[in-house]
Design a binder for these strands. Structure first.
Lengths: 179, 179
DNA sequence: CGACTATTTGACCCTTCTCAAATCGGGTGG
DNA sequence: CCACCCGATTTGAGAAGGGTCAAATAGTCG
């Protein structure tokens, strides 16, 4: 799945997926917000609603190149335990996603970069491929211009280094910036 | 459960609850945001993490007076189907909660009022008891002062009417204000 | 190479934040 | 029942971070 590509859309038929690598944006078309309805990172399950309705009720979009695997592995119904695990992961992700809309523009971008890098063992030195500015802007509720300026400042401050469409996190412990 | 009261805190032992009436705020203390980790409205399940760990991993706080019921009803493990339903409701709530941090201050307050009123059959004329300004501010990522001014404007515009600590929604269809 | 799109940068404006002070509410002790 | 206290809400004035609009660059993909 390449960057900035729809994985599936609302009302399509399909099954659930586990994210192996990459970051997925979920979209709820009828939400009064701007449609953005959550993020999913490696290990998370997306499209679980198909276990009940056979059709997707959210759309899914690859923020960065993604690898997905059908879920559950076999063709049987998932056990209560794995659904419960999925539920807990989802709640955790909700809190993290909400945090991406809190604080100064720089804090928001910093948090997003960490979330994108979180599958890595160590944040320091992790290489993260970046979503499009437009997507980053919608997720954080900022504008593309503000995101661009925030990233420029992080680069100036030496917190990140740039490598084509990827960035390298250099200073993961700096500037928590909790208000 | 009265307004502005903790229902349970992180690491306490306890079980899951179904919200019968009222609105609950979930808090994730280690989140980098401001701790706010989600909302739950009537019909939602909170504290499901106790099915796996026996202790709460989020805290819960009554935004307005709440009635809760133990969940699941009996003492048996909930079936896959009810967990799946809970998961889908949670995802829906995530999208709605994210929307509360998007758009102008007035839009955010409007959306929150509708969410608080959503258990009612008809939004028009629904009476909603209000959370404390401080709580409304944290949920929407605005300040108390801005919330106060936004509510004043909604009152001027005739969208809401005031009744002590409650408001009555008068004009639920006006001003979607989607950006 | 050339058309397009994505990103970056600049200048100026507006909403919201800040800091302060005034009111309001409701609970308590006389 | 009433005066008083304390936290919650409201209001004002000024400052600032982001938004907006426009234009210049940098990348991408045929």
């Amino acid at each position: 799945m390449s960057r900035s590509e729809w994985i599936y859309r609302v009302a399509e038929e399909g099954h659930a997926w586990r994210i192996v690598s990459g970051t997925v944006r979920l979209d709820c078309p009828n939400a009064s917000g701007n449609g953005f309805g959550g993020l999913a990172i490696p290990g998370d399950i997306i499209g679980a609603e198909t276990l009940m309705f056979a059709r997707y009720s959210f759309a899914a979009y690859a923020l960065v190149p993604c690898i997905l695997a059908p879920w559950p592995e076999g063709c049987e119904t998932p056990a209560s335990e794995s659904l419960l695990k999925t539920l807990l992961r989802t709640e955790q992700r909700t809190a993290e996603t909400l945090a991406l809309r809190h604080g100064s523009s720089i804090d928001r971008v910093r948090r997003l970069l960490r979330l994108l890098a979180s599958p890595a063992k160590h944040l320091a030195g992790a290489t993260v491929s970046l979503p499009a500015l437009r997507d980053t802007a919608e997720i954080t509720c900022l504008t593309m211009e503000t995101i661009s300026r925030a990233m420029a400042k992080l680069r100036q401050q030496g917190e990140i280094d740039r490598l084509k469409r990827d960035v390298v996190l250099l200073c993961p412990t700096a500037g928590q910036g909790v208000a």
